[in-house]
């Protein structure tokens, strides 16, 4: 385990047209740790993590200033290969969107694009990814069935497997459990715990117990601005800022 900064964010601003959605944000995200982003609805959590793999690019009218350095390289530099970036920084969405294909083809989607069409190798990658996403046992006998027939929790783990299959270094989760029941949520949380051995993880969540359970560091956002950032335990037990305390006690109280 290292204690290096995997992602360094400096003076990050983002505008949707005229509307400023992120204001002068700075943050250091450590390697092989889970960093949680919390804050009220509309404060810019999703916007913020989408900046980490430039998923805001396809949105119309977006303008970004500042730096996001991953392994010391600013991903907003002109010479950055966005495709390679997204391969390195995978993303999971609030609502899982399995492609309307078989379970197998879903997981094989990324590898087919990036590295191999070799059948045997693909099989290995698919199995390994599904195992690491703790879905293998449940689907190994129906890999050729449509992914759309899986339950919501299974779909979310399938999407995780699909992301793992392109072998990223960082995984961004945007409220991955908000549509899931407690049991599926527990499975995803256990999985995140496993994944942090090999990956750097950033997770947006509305659920503060969840942030407390899964994360090592937590950042609190309000109106597009990061108010407080620190070790999860300290932030929850001893918030330094009044806004953070109000939010945490308001929710817990």
């Amino acid at each position: 385990m290292t204690d290096e900064n995997k992602i360094v964010i400096r003076d990050l601003n983002l505008w949707y047209g005229d509307k400023r959605a992120l204001i002068d944000n700075n943050m250091d995200i450590r390697e092989n740790k889970v960093t949680a982003i919390i804050g009220p609805s509309g404060c810019g959590k999703s916007t913020f993590i989408r900046c980490l793999n430039r998923m805001n690019d396809p949105v119309e009218g977006v303008r970004v200033t500042g730096e996001v350095r991953i392994d010391s390289k600013n991903i907003y530099d002109k010479d950055v290969d966005v495709v390679a970036l997204r391969k390195k920084v995978g993303m999971l969405f609030q609502k899982p969107n399995p492609f309307p294909m078989s379970i197998y083809d879903n997981v094989a989607y990324g590898p087919r694009i990036h590295c191999t069409r070799d059948k045997k190798k693909l099989r290995e990658i698919v199995e390994e990814s599904l195992r690491n996403a703790t879905l293998w046992e449940e689907v190994s006998d129906r890999l050729d069935k449509s992914a759309l027939d899986l339950s919501g929790g299974q779909q979310q783990r399938l999407c995780i497997a699909r992301t793992l299959a392109v072998k990223p270094e960082i995984i961004l989760f945007d409220e991955p459990c908000s549509a899931l029941d407690p049991i599926s949520t527990g499975k995803i949380e256990d999985l995140i715990h496993e994944l942090k051995r090999e990956y750097t993880i950033v997770i947006v969540t509305h659920n503060m117990q969840q942030a407390a359970r899964v994360s090592d560091y937590t950042a609190y956002f309000l109106l597009g601005k990061m108010i407080e950032f620190g070790k999860t335990k300290e932030l929850f037990e001893n918030p330094k800022e009044k806004e953070t305390e109000d939010y945490i006690t308001g929710r817990f109280g």
Partner: peptide, 15 residues
Amino acid sequence: IPFGEKMESYGLGAT
């Protein structure tokens, strides 16, 4: 075609 499906494809590094 759902926007989410396209976003996930981009997210996996597809052009």
